[in-house]
Amino acid sequence: MSEAVLYDVQGPRARRRVLIGSIFGALFVGLLVLLAVRRLAANGQFAGELYEPFVSEPDLYRRLGTGLLNTLRAAGYALVLALLLGTLLAFGRLSSRAWLRAPAVAVIEFFRGVPLLLLILFFFLAFPLAFGIDLPPLYALVFGLTLYNGAVIAEIIRAGVLSLPKGQTEAAVAIGLRRGQTLRLVLLPQALRIMLPALVSQLVVLLKDTSLGFVIGFEELLRIGGQAVQVLDNPIQLYVLIALIYITLNVGLGRLAGYLEGRQRKTYGPDLPSQKVEESGLGQVSAAP
């Protein structure tokens, strides 16, 4: 449904009212911007030396590039591992055997319900103290991300499998496939395709969460930015730049998810199987903050 239903096609009087509203709206937004700019100017935030490093320090971009590469590396490793773990957990939860299903449900619910930072700190703090193994920060970050995203991806895959028509399972059983074969050969490939947009959206969450690496001293984009701020003393300018880098990457991924969804609409029509899953409450598919 479009949003235009909240107001009518505008006649001359409504157009005039909207115009007046637009002027006041623009004034309101402009006032906010003006206040921000005045505040920034009053505190010398437009002084040249705060922006000068962006031009005069090519080294800054080399450092940020290294950070970005580390961010992408952590996200890439975590994505691969989380897909593996998620598939395993989804199989467990969809299994007909209760002794497989129960632990899978427990694991999924536990890792979804605990703060990600706690999982990362577990690998970073508990491993050296309790087992005498020092995990490098990259590993601690990747393992923490894997547990959380694996649990979420398991739910996405399960929702995808449940959204498939019953005939798929029945046909597989009819030609003599076992339960495991049915899942692996018939249901999983289709579920992954149906849930591809949801998986890409989850990738945005994963990429954002790699920034938690700064807590344990992993040199990803944000931590490198923090180090640069210590030297350059321009937190607002530098953190805005870093936010813009994240926004660019994530908007790109969001576009990709939208494109994939659009392609599916061509295949399945306006009612996507993944949306039906969401509405029926079988699985929580949309990415949480």
Binding site: R39, L40, A42, N43, Q45, V204, K208, D209, S211, L212, F214, L222, G225, G226, V229, P235, I236, Y239, V240, I242, A243, Y246, I247, N250, V251, G254, P289
Partner: peptide, 24 residues
């Protein structure tokens, strides 16, 4: 909405905790 949704919460924290003191 678009800008904030695509920014990590940690970056929002950095901007607030280190940015706001810069403007008093």
């Amino acid at each position: 909405v678009q800008a904030v949704r695509n920014t990590p919460l940690t970056v929002v924290f950095f901007l607030v905790v280190f940015g706001l003191p810069e403007v008093g």
